[in-house]
Design a protein around this nucleic acid. Sequence first.
DNA 1: GCCGTTTTCGGCCCGACTGTTTTCAGTCG
Length: 585
Amino acid sequence: MARSNDEVAALFQEYADLILITGGDPFKARAYEKAARAIGGHHAEVRDLDLKGLQKIPGVGKSIAEKVLEYFRGGSVSAVEEVRAKIPAGVRQLTMIPTLGPRKAMTLYEELHISSIDELVDAIHQERLRDLKGFGPRTEEKILHGIGLMQAAGDRVLVDVAMDLAEELVSELSHVRGCLRCVYAGSLRRLRETIGDIDILVAARDSEPVMRAFTSLPQITEVTAHGDTKTSVRTTRGLAVDLRVLPPDAWGAGLLYFTGSRAHNIRIREIAVHQGLRLSEYGLFDVDSGDLIVSETEEDVYSRLGLPWIPPALREDRGEVEAGLRGELPELVTEEDIRGDLHTHTDLTDGLAPLEEMVAAAEQRGYSYFAVTDHAPNLYMQRMTEERMLEQRRQLHELDRRHRGRGGSGRMRLLHGTELNIDPDGELDWPDDVLAGFDLCVASVHSHFNQDRAALTRRLVRACENPYVNVIGHPTTRVIGKRPGLDADLDAVFAACARTGTALEINSHPDRLDLGDEAILRARRYGVKFVVNSDAHSALHLAHLRFGVGTAQRGWLTSEDVINTWPYARLRRFLRKGRAERSAA
DNA sequence: GCCGTTTTCGGCCCGACTGTTTTCAGTCG
């Protein structure tokens, strides 16, 4: 099952939204929002905690702790149910539209009884919003644009949501008698950034026990199709899942077929046809005799077609087949190659965990280096000051000394960094003499997303040209399904990065994955270096790195391209960039 | 509703932008 923390976090986030929509105390709403975040990022399962244990979570007091207990006792919280009864769920859906917040959503509901996105679109087309106070033609335009963005994402979900569910299902099905193998395939195996539905494959001689076990899993709400080889369901999280049961000796062909992509499958079937062969999910066959040639493993099938095994992340018909035929497939970067995380936050700014906890979690992951990069003063809400930053540096050096004291080659080195704000002119938060004190600087755009193309491009290029900026953080600032990327001339930015020795970040947060795969493919042609970072705001988020690595793989990157796979000394040389030579720490 | 080198009440992340206003509410990061 999903972590109990996620259920509770979602419930309190909903409660916070409903408080705001109904015009309740905004500070109370914030308290619930904060608690939701803290619970979501908390290491222990809240299901297992008692009142005292719950209250140890920052932002959780007596009242919220009691609601958590109430939830696990009876499956609901009366305070939440009360406000749910007043506001249709669709009203909250409206607030998911960018630029449409709780107040406007409530106005729409109260004045026009609008409680769904469809009703809203109709009302706009009928010009019924025109008479509402605070609504004008520009508002209508922005709402429609926002809805367009959401619908472009369609019913797809972010990769982490699908991954959590798929791993649960695979784990449960693996225990069923007669299940010889079980994996997820499809776009999830290819690590696409959004997932339309989940494909799960099982190898079994008899499909019936597996199908029966599958349809009775608690996550499944509706069985939409049910046969011998395929069962389709909907799950509690709204996501569709197809289960396919394959005969064990057709495993490789089936896995290949159901991993896709469609375009990749078409390309390799063409190759088969040219060799007088026919490829299906059951195997590779001789067209004339109809004899099965190979089917047991993916390697067998690829190999018989004259291809090396192609990593799923590459299977998009973006040149991987040709590269395979030439024997020139890249040796893709893997999560095991990553030696450290270079963009993380602590509770000094908007992270959830204190410095020590983040460092301990990084060590747990076996990193050989780790950078803490809290926000800088110009992100005003974070209340960062030079004093606070210097105090953190002192603590970090102290921790670093302690780690070194333990000796051994496995010790982890700590770097003190910051995430700077690139202002509208390309200027940064601190003067050069302050920046010079950091081991590395990530610089990101956090505001003024709507500058014109020339200004945005100049802004990013100027940031690259700053000798203290080592990394451009989440370079396009897109939020998947919510905000498009900056309208900048990315090629000019990539060229500037390559010229100045500035790395481009691949931000691993599942709603960013920025740069995305296609931009990476473009950028790598300039000889740019990349860094795959978690941008973790809690210890748990360090694990998001797998999605960033998946995105890097989809961008054909090798460990040579990714600076945080490099040994510490080589990384430090890169980070010196154009700065005046100073002794390496 | 939470929390405390502003401490048991009274604050709570602060500023900018946008579109609507005609002095400001709503939204966002």
